[in-house]
Amino acid sequence: MTRAATVAVRQTPKPAEEIMRSNNPVFNRSEEFNRSGGAAYQDFGQQYDGYAQPGSPTTESRTQGRMTIDSVVQSTAITLGITMIAAIATWLVTPEITPETGIPSSLLAAVTLGSGAAFILSLVNSFKRVISPALVIAFAVAEGVAMGALSELFNAVYGGSIIVQAVLGTFAAFAGTLAAYKFFDIQVGNKFRTFVIAAMFGMVALSLLEVVLGMFGGNNLGLFEDGMLGLVFAIAGLVLGVFMLILDFDFVERGVAAGIPERESWRAAFGLLVSLVWIYTNLLRILAILQSD
């Protein structure tokens, strides 16, 4: 094979159905992302947009209304901003925790209702084929209420610095993971996706089992306690959250390359918010356990 032929093979884009397939449960319900190029976009299978000449009429018509990095950043900024506003508002409106009053029932209700609503909305958004920005925003509000109440609880028990440390650590994990993904050119394979998805569902199942056992007075597994098992479980959750971010970045990169509709930016924003909240809560638990020792 000549050098010219070798270069041509290397530059030949992957088939559209390979480019657009995802095993992430947050993203694999997207019809546009999982359909083959010929089925989703009749003109996409003929030519990969990234290889069209800039400024040509074909390129301009294809890029209109498509997901871009800018649209993902905007959608993510909106959802993250709403989550933070809801968290701050919940912190301010709920009564303070004092030694005399203990934990207010309204604070416990905010944690329970917020996390319950967020869990239900996360399932709806994950398995909804056509993403709904309104449901993503509703999820952000519910998640913000839960995170605000939970943060206030941790602040009262372990001190105010733990919240600042967890927030800074979450954004540091996001920035570090994004930098590693781009600079080290991390390639996401099917085995890695399968492992992350299986681990995520397994951790969720164990967490639900722990909650159910606690509600009915059974012997807890110790996953949420301050012992060594709780620390290991939180560290595993933190690592898994970083892996989830990698899947999110992979979805955005493949989605932009495939030219999926702009509304899918909200699906990307939803996935990123889920990963960030996952990292934040596990960082909170790790810091709390380390301070209690």
Rank of each mutant, 00 (worst) to 15 (best):
S115G: 06
T90W: 03
I19Y: 01
G259H: 05
R29C: 06
E225P: 03
F249W: 05
L206M: 15
I286C: 08
N219R: 09
F243D: 02
I85W: 11
A117G: 10
F192A: 10
G271S: 05
N220I: 08
G255M: 09
A77E: 07
F139N: 01
L108I: 04
A140F: 04
T112S: 10
Q74G: 01
V274L: 13
V188K: 02
A89Y: 07
S126H: 05
A109M: 09
W91H: 05
E210H: 01
A236Q: 01
G81N: 08
T58H: 11
I235H: 10
I286N: 02
F44L: 07
A39E: 06
P25N: 03
Y158A: 14
L113R: 01
Y51R: 09
I88H: 09
D43C: 04
G271Y: 00
L231E: 07
G81P: 04
I19K: 09
L221F: 15
D49W: 15
L107R: 00
N190R: 10
D185A: 11
T68Y: 08
S122V: 08
T90P: 11
M215P: 00
L113N: 03
A180M: 07
A4M: 10
Q42R: 13
N28R: 14
A4W: 04
G65R: 11
D226W: 13
A39D: 04
F33M: 15
S132T: 12
F192Y: 13
G237V: 01
F154Y: 12
G114C: 06
G81I: 03
N28Y: 07
G38E: 06
A110R: 01
D293M: 13
P95Q: 11
P104T: 02
A257E: 08
E264W: 03
F192P: 13
A40Y: 12
V274S: 00
I69T: 07
S265H: 05
T94S: 15
A117K: 00
E32L: 05
A117P: 02
N155F: 11
I97Q: 10
T6F: 12
Q74I: 14
I286P: 00
S61I: 02
V73S: 02
T79A: 15
L238S: 07
L80P: 07
Y48I: 06
T170L: 04
T90N: 05
E264G: 05
T63M: 14
